[in-house]
């Protein structure tokens, strides 16, 4: 599982960080950091998928393994 961030779009509103803080982190310059390796935990992965569909500006794309 890999996350691709559309940097043109991402505005750092942090919705993803609210749902899966283990994977997403918005810094105070509103820049989104995404974890390189996402653990194989099904519960966490379900939340990561939810983060992707919850992004209000659709800046996240998910590539499944």
């Amino acid at each position: 599982m890999k996350i691709i961030v559309d940097r043109q779009r991402c505005d750092g509103n942090g919705v993803c960080m609210g749902i899966a803080p283990e994977v997403f982190d918005v810094d105070d310059d509103l820049y989104l950091h995404v974890a390189e390796n996402i653990p194989e935990d099904p519960e966490l992965r379900a939340r990561v998928r939810q983060s992707v569909t919850s992004c209000p500006i659709l800046a996240l794309k998910l590539v499944e393994d």
């Binding site: 750092g12 942090g14 960080m17 609210g18 803080p21 982190d25 810094d27 105070d28 509103l30």
Partner: peptide, 12 residues
């Protein structure tokens, strides 16, 4: 305002 990390930490 413009402090997303702090706000999200407070949410947790």
């Amino acid at each position: 305002v413009n402090v997303p990390r702090i706000v999200m930490r407070l949410r947790r």
